[in-house]
């Protein structure tokens, strides 16, 4: 199974508010709010850490959930955010020039 890598899109602005990451697309001003689990994944999305490792370190430990279920949910989440254009998702590490 290939690794997945994630990084916030360049066309967003994000800020943590009251424990939720609030993300805005600067292209069309749509605003997204992420729950604590999604916020933890978002905050660790550096383009070079595999998603599976992010989930293990930031979700499984912090939220005490089953690793496989957590990874499946995380994959679903990042695919959704990528579809919305606010997150980059790739099968290889994402360089800053690609963001």
């Amino acid at each position: 199974m290939s690794e997945k890598y994630i990084q916030p899109s360049r066309d967003i602005a994000a800020r943590m508010l009251a424990g939720e990451m609030v993300v805005m697309s600067v292209k069309d001003s749509r605003v997204f709010s992420l729950n604590p689990t999604a916020s933890a994944i978002w905050s660790a999305a550096d383009g070079s850490t595999p998603l599976r490792e992010i989930v293990a370190r930031k979700v499984v430990t912090e939220f005490e959930v089953d690793p496989d279920t957590a990874y499946r949910d995380a994959l679903e989440l990042v695919e959704e955010l990528a579809k919305e254009g606010i997150l980059l998702l790739a099968d290889h590490p994402i360089g800053t020039e690609a963001a």
Partner: peptide, 8 residues
């Protein structure tokens, strides 16, 4: 309103 909804 939650902060996120308020921003939206």
């Amino acid at each position: 309103l939650s902060s996120a909804d308020a921003v939206r």
